Amino acid sequence: MHHHGYLWAGPKQRFDDEALRRPAHPDPPPPGSRPELVQRHREVAAEFPRTDLPPLETAYWLVKPAGLVRGTWQAPQDAARWLSGQLAAHAERFASSAERSPTRLKALEHSAAARLARGGDVSHGFYLERPTFLSLALVCCTPNHAMPHLACPLSLEVGSG
């Protein structure tokens, strides 16, 4: 098992486009459906795997382009340290002063390491200067416990970061 790190920062309005943050239903609309419904299904089916938007279910990061992976680690502690570094790099821009607390940021690192060690995924979101939103995720891979059928997006040697 290894872990991939993902980071997305962008307009909150774009983040709120939930249709592009979830995979299309596996079955297309039935024959005779409204043309706009059929077209929307096609758009979502084509765009979901390509868009850089964070998926609603963290494990679905694994179907996104490999270029979105910000790092890969074998050890949960190493992945959690990457998360901690990203939190530190963005903390002064957090909209809430409580989220900037060094004690809170250290607690997020420790809880991430513990969750990853149990095979779970980690996902955090923060408002930065409005209207910007930051999404950070660490996803277990090979296998992902929530969705073991999802393949690893990388064929590179694990251990970068």
Rank of each mutant, 00 (worst) to 15 (best):
V139Q: 05
H124Q: 14
L108F: 15
F126Q: 14
G10T: 02
S96F: 05
D17T: 10
R22N: 13
E129W: 13
G10Y: 00
G119W: 10
D17M: 08
Y6D: 13
P49A: 06
C152S: 09
D52K: 00
H3D: 09
Q74A: 12
A95Y: 15
A45W: 08
K64F: 02
H4C: 06
H3E: 12
S84Q: 07
F126V: 09
H110Q: 11
A89D: 15
V44W: 03
A117V: 05
S84H: 05
R42A: 14
K12S: 14
T51I: 04
G71H: 07
M147R: 08
L87G: 07
V158R: 07
P54H: 04
L105D: 14
P153W: 03
A107P: 02
P65G: 04
R118E: 14
P131T: 09
L105V: 03
F15Q: 02
V63K: 04
A146L: 04
D78R: 11
R93G: 06
G120C: 04
L134D: 01
R70K: 14
L20E: 03
L68W: 05
R81D: 12
P28V: 02
A113L: 05
R118N: 11
H25N: 07
D16E: 11
H124N: 10
P76R: 10
T72P: 12
L37N: 11
K12W: 11
R100Y: 09
L134V: 08
H149N: 01
R40C: 15
L53I: 02
R42H: 12
A146H: 04
R40K: 15
P30M: 01
L62Q: 08
H3W: 15
R50M: 08
H41Q: 07
A59D: 06
E18H: 07
T72M: 15
Q39M: 15
A80E: 01
A89L: 09
A91D: 12
V158L: 03
A112Y: 07
T72S: 15
L53D: 01
S97C: 12
D78I: 12
P31D: 01
E43I: 13
L53S: 04
R42T: 10
G32D: 00
F15S: 04
V139L: 08
E157C: 08
F48N: 03
W8D: 00
T58E: 00
V158P: 08
L53A: 11
A91W: 02
S123R: 09
W82V: 08
P143T: 01
